[in-house]
């Protein structure tokens, strides 16, 4: 059963008729975005932009791209022009012959929730003419009304602070918000109301349907000391246990970390704005200053292949500077 939030989805199901057992199993970072492909065939490892585009055609399945942590408005030494690097990455996507079906943005669209920053986001992503699905990061909710600016732009058809679900090509996508009502000393927070909604959203779905969940802060605990996890993420993941294929996409930590646990595969994405240190490698998280000429090495490209059945996972990093 699909919730009313499906009105958010703009595309219709694929005429190629991929079966609902199809497993989301293949992805590649493009620029600072991640290209995902959905198919029932042989796994592919997609690579650089040109390779990824060719591979997309070969797969002949629907694809989407994940963007994260664009931090529009960030202008500190770690990247004085975050809008510029975002525009650069979006330009590569826009130039693709075989464009992805849609874009998922996993939050921190803006740096300070300012109207101009949201306007720049609208213009930048709009220029691709590719439908983009958003969920907020904590930086998107720091306006005086604590989220009103975000919801005015992206809240149509959503619940609560902006969570929703939709279906595409037989896959059920769920956008969760775990950056609201954070508790002192704690991690990300979904809240009981959202978890109850999730339970209801999943209740009548067949376990064979692939599920993609996206949220800003990792739903699993990457590094608690830096707040890189979600306090009640386990409650959400418990609801997903019965599904045969679950992919969880997160941002927030500005680097790639992956984990496979049972039928659930976790991925965190790089930022298009600036890198952050690896867990525990610095006194604190935050923008990592690297030489300007090396910035694109840190905003690099990673190809991901998740093999169906044996849960093996292959990861290949590629640098943006090599495109």
């Amino acid at each position: 059963m699909t919730e009313p939030q499906n009105s958010i989805a703009s595309d219709t199901d694929s005429p190629t008729g991929l079966d609902r057992r199809s497993v989301l199993r293949c992805g590649a970072w493009m620029g600072a975005g991640v290209l995902w492909s959905v198919s029932g065939g042989v796994p592919y490892s997609l690579g650089l932009l040109g390779e990824a585009e060719a591979a997309t055609a070969a797969v002949a399945g629907p694809t989407f791209i994940q963007f994260s942590d664009s931090h529009i408005g960030f202008d500190k030494p770690a990247n004085p022009n975050a809008l510029g690097t975002l525009t650069e990455a979006l330009g590569k996507v826009g130039a693709m012959k075989n464009k992805p079906g849609f874009i998922i943005h996993t939050g921190d669209i803006t740096h300070l929730s300012k109207p101009q920053q949201f306007d720049d986001a609208k213009q930048s992503f709009g220029a691709t003419r590719i439908k983009t699905f958003y969920i907020p990061g904590e930086h998107d909710l720091v306006d005086a009304d604590q989220g009103k600016a975000y919801l005015e732009r992206y809240g149509k058809g959503t619940k609560g602070a902006g969570y929703y679900s939709f279906d595409q090509h037989g896959i059920h996508y769920i956008g969760l918000v775990n950056v609201v009502d954070l508790k002192a000393g704690g991690l990300g927070n979904l809240g009981d109301e959202q978890i109850a909604w999730l339970a209801n959203d999943l209740k009548h779905r067949r376990s064979s349907q692939p599920i993609v969940v996206f949220a800003h802060i990792p739903l699993w605990v990457v590094y608690a000391d830096w707040g890189w996890g979600t306090d009640d993420g386990a409650k959400a993941l418990a609801l997903l246990q019965r599904f045969g294929s679950v992919t969880v996409l997160n941002g927030h930590i500005h680097q790639i970390i992956q984990k496979v646990e049972g039928n659930i595969t976790f991925h965190t994405a790089r930022s298009t704005a600036f890198p952050q240190p690896t867990p525990g490698s610095a006194p604190a998280p935050g923008p990592q200053l690297v030489p300007a000429e090396q910035l694109r090495d840190y905003l690099g490209i990673t190809s991901v292949t998740i093999k169906r059945g044996n849960k093996a996972l292959a990861l290949t990093d590629r640098e943006l500077s090599q495109i």
Partner: peptide
């Protein structure tokens, strides 16, 4: 009076 950063709640 206790407080925290609501963006980074590990900061208290």
């Amino acid at each position: 009076f206790t407080y925290f950063c609501a963006l980074h709640p590990k900061m208290t």
